[in-house]
Design a protein around this nucleic acid. Structure first.
Lengths: 339, 339
DNA sequence: CTGAAAGCGCTTACAG
DNA sequence: CTGAAAGCGCTTACAG
């Protein structure tokens, strides 16, 4: 390393061009009119000296921070790792840095975004609320700062990037129907925003295959393993119990698998289980779980691009993006219905 | 939100105290000598107006960015989620923001840190190298920038925060010995830095219990599930195969579990398996895996504190910290040796 | 002991 | 059309 930072003044000295003109060249100011030769000289000097504009000075002048904050209480979810990865990539490409905030309990604080914003460090937010969904989204809206919901939805006004939950679930249901399953359970939420979208996909899948919707097979459960266990207990206690289950994520699927073992129900022999969000954990479960795959990094990527558009106020661009599933990854947890 | 940012000038206007004095009050300048009453007035005005110093202006003036970068190729590992969480907490407390960089393949680029540094955005680094361990650590050292290795080690000079791998592994081995196991296999690395530390703990544990070290039971394998599978195959193919295995992480443990199933070896009936880094995944495996627990968030927390000390040049402070295990979480994958 | 003034590195409205 | 100059919001060496 060593040595002083190279500043725009150094480039000016080296080339004999004024700092103002250099700044304009760098920012492609259309007002500027200099010979291409001069531009070339400047570019060369910049490369030689290794000049990089100081983001602090730039930020101070332009009243922007060049940083985005991503608020993700549920970073434990393997899905978020992929999402963060995509978001990082987009931020890097667009010249922003990204803070990850609100991990863990801290993330349940509805005022977290306000706190981060008031420290003047951030131009906008990517938001994935946790359990206090409604309250937190309301807080974000009140904030009035540029924000994009990631894998969350409130209304068409609030910018969002979501998965096409509906067609993903329908995909899983069609797979189970192909295997001859007619009684399929749904373990998820019937209230949270994503839950209702997935439930809609569940109904759509059944309808596509002419299967009857039986609301006793739908259980509103928590999104963790305990939730999956409770849900599976409920639905498997029915006299005419389902031959297959759809679980809204891998933790719920893991809970269902555990209950199946308790009840000595072979998976997939006596019970097929399909899940959502394909990812590394799906393959670690026993048996490995068939699940719907999405390009989750793209979700993060698009969210950052949308956020930066909002910040710069440039072009309209869509205020809602829906990302379709890439397909279904069939593993050992599903097979043809027996009998 | 709304409205202009509150600046130090606003506080000056409101209180009649000069901006310079206000700055000194905020930064506890010992040279300053004003009446406590004045200080009080200023503090009250700051609170009322909601003044927060602009970090950009501060950074520009002080030639520091107020940001740290954490480079973690292996964010997929559940261990890193906890580490990041602790690091975030410390950064927040100390007034820094934290960027997560180098996720995924990008992280294998030995020049990543240099690239981030040259963009002037960062005061220091937390480093957890990926596969190219030696090469990357060398690059960091060449950089000359403040850096702390997180869960990595090169030598005593390069600041680091590590786990006490040795006593953690010894803990697991003692547990297995308590259960009557005498032939215990080791699936991990015998070359990477952490691997050799863990192997030392393995030997120590055996020695403590008077068990013979048999190097045929030590397999140098990759740190993913495929590695665990290959390692387990090797060691379970022995005529006098081990009755228990120590796996260096949960992915390796998952691989070993899979091989045990293939070979129709009941776990834990015919084979006990203990692993490292207790975390959410340990509980999702079948059977749930006994593993050594560490306060991983503390690892991240201490690393950030050390890094900030290096940056501010304040007080000596230790250049190496070792974090002991909190204990062993016993689950269903280990039981008394049969026969 | 304190307050005014310079300067960190940029960008851009403005005068020439 | 271009270059000099002001100013973003801080901090601190320096003059009074």
């Amino acid at each position: 390393m060593a040595g002083k930072r190279v500043t725009i003044a150094d480039v000016a000295k080296a080339t004999g061009v004024s700092p103002g003109a250099i700044s304009r060249i760098l920012n492609n100011d259309p007002t500027l009119n200099v010979r291409d030769e001069t531009k070339e000289t400047v570019r060369r000097a910049i490369a030689e000296l290794g000049y990089v504009p100081n983001p602090q000075a730039r930020g101070l002048r332009l009243a922007r921070s060049g940083s985005l904050a991503m608020i993700v209480p549920e970073i434990n979810s393997p899905a978020f790792v992929a999402i963060i990865q995509g978001a990082q990539r987009a931020a890097y490409e667009l010249g922003y840095s990204m803070l990850i905030g609100g991990i863990g309990e801290e993330g349940e604080d509805p005022n977290l975004a306000a706190r981060i914003l008031s420290s003047n460090r951030v131009d906008g937010f990517l938001i994935s609320t946790g359990k206090q969904e409604a309250r937190q989204l309301a807080a974000v809206q009140r904030l009035g700062a540029p924000a994009v919901l990631v894998n969350r939805y409130l209304n068409e006004q609030l910018p969002h990037v979501v998965l096409d939950d509906k067609s993903g679930v329908a995909l899983a249901i069609n797979h189970l129907a192909d295997l001859g399953h007619e009684r399929i359970g749904f373990l998820g939420s019937t209230r949270r925003f994503l839950g209702t979208r997935r439930l809609a996909g569940f109904k759509q899948g059944l309808a596509e295959r002419g299967l009857r919707f039986d609301k006793r097979l739908v259980v509103d459960c928590g999104y963790d393993r305990e939730g999956g266990e409770a849900g599976a207990h409920t639905v498997l206690a029915l006299a005419d119990r389902p031959t297959a289950l759809f679980a809204t994520n891998h933790l719920v699927a893991a809970g269902a698998l555990r209950v199946a073992r308790e009840l000595a129900l072979d998976v997939p022999g006596a019970l097929s289980i399909a899940s959502f969000y394909d990812g590394p954990v799906a393959d670690l479960l026993t048996p490995a779980v068939t699940s719907v795959a999405y390009p989750l990094d793209q979700l993060g990527y698009e969210a950052v691009r949308m956020l930066v558009r909002l910040i710069t106020g440039e072009g309209a661009g869509p205020t809602g993006i829906t990302i379709p599933p890439t397909g279904l990854v069939v593993r050992q947890s599903t097979c043809a219905v027996s009998g």
